[in-house]
Nucleic acid binder design. Structure first.
Length: 325
DNA sequence: GGTAGACCTGGACGC
DNA sequence: GCGTCCAGGTCTACC
């Protein structure tokens, strides 16, 4: 992505922050419109400025620097700089208190040594919900394709806003972006947000309990137990585990649980929750660190993953027979 | 409360 | 090239 002349701004970072680790920590970092350049180790994506105008940013950090460098492809004013900071703080989880991550590092020294803590997410809560919808009941390469098409055909190069998606019919979205039956759910979500029937702010309220938020998320059409738990972690609530078939596969391979000893899926579900309970309230981070390390042992460090080359390898068919060495 | 079947797509496979 | 099967999480109808 060529850099156009524009503003370069900086954002202070907490001690020990590592941009590479923070970005390359969750699969969404290779979903459009995110782009991680494995050669330069820089992160590109479009963000929204005044009146939702597009601003392409390139993020970089010098070794051991406590400043994030943000190169923009256009000049930004003070108001837009504040908008960019809000979105970037969310992506990098800089809006979460550092004390939480100190507690996490103390609880899990191995993760601390690897610099694993802040897990990548989207610049807006809405994008995280839609990305989660596109990751359900579908293989990972298909999730990647849906996000490419949503970005290209609805968002004109950026991830679509609720307003943009609300203007599409489910039929047109299905045909154009290959999202299948998710089209009706995505459009309904967008329209509910635009029309004020769904207020996302209470879901981001960290003074509420996770059980409360989880229950509200289940009220959203298209969000079931797995998606709600995943959205909880995206909201910074790590005490819920998004357990899916990939979790089952990983747990069986990583912990040597045999099929005969598994019992029913519900039994295995309970076993998984009991296993990670020791890391409360950071169960998700412990689980994800373990799963992410298993992926890296197979295909190399995440910061060298190229979307086109490595994306298609993350399918159950490819992973199920390979040992977690 | 539990369960079966439909939803939708793309890839794998057999012919 | 075509048809069939499969993986994936959620919803709905039914018991």
């Amino acid at each position: 992505m060529p850099l156009m002349p524009g503003s370069t701004i900086t954002l202070p970072l907490p001690a020990r922050f590592d941009l590479t680790r923070a970005i390359c920590s969750y699969g969404y970092f290779i979903l459009a419109p995110n782009h991680w350049d494995t050669t330069t180790q820089r992160f590109h994506r479009p963000l929204r400025g005044n009146a939702d105008r597009l601003i392409h940013v390139t993020l970089s950090q010098r070794p051991r620097s406590d400043l994030l460098k943000i190169a923009c492809d256009t000049r930004v004013d003070r108001a837009e700089r504040a908008l960019l900071f809000t979105q970037l703080r969310r992506i990098l989880r800089l809006d979460e208190p550092e004390s939480r991550y100190r507690a996490w590092r103390k609880l899990h020294p191995e993760a601390a040594r690897r610099g694993f803590g802040r897990v990548f997410r989207s610049p807006t809560f809405f994008e995280d919900i839609v990305k989660t919808m596109t990751s359900c009941n579908v293989t990972w390469p298909n999730t990647m394709r849906m996000n490419v098409l949503l970005t290209a055909r609805v968002g004109n190069g950026a991830f679509p806003t609720p307003g943009e998606l609300a203007g599409w019919s489910p039929e047109k979205l299905k045909a154009s972006c290959r999202v299948g039956y998710r089209a009706e759910r995505i459009v309904k979500l967008a329209r509910d947000v635009v029309d004020g029937r769904l207020d996302l702010a209470p879901l981001e309220d960290m003074s509420r309990t996770t059980d409360d938020v989880f229950g509200d998320l289940l009220e959203i059409h298209g969000i079931g137990p797995y998606a709600a738990a995943n959205i909880c972690q995206l909201l910074g609530r790590y005490d819920r585990l998004p357990i899916d078939t990939e979790t089952y596969r990983h747990f069986r391979q990583e912990h040597g649980v045999r099929h005969k000893a598994d019992g029913s899926p519900r039994d295995l579900h309970g076993k998984i929750e009991r296993h990670y309970k020791r890391y409360a309230p950071f169960q998700f981070l412990a689980y994800w660190f373990e799963l992410w390390r298993a992926y890296e042992r197979r295909v190399g460090d995440a910061w060298n993953w190229d979307a086109a080359k490595h994306g298609p390898t993350f399918t159950a068919a490819n992973l199920k027979d390979a040992p977690n060495t």
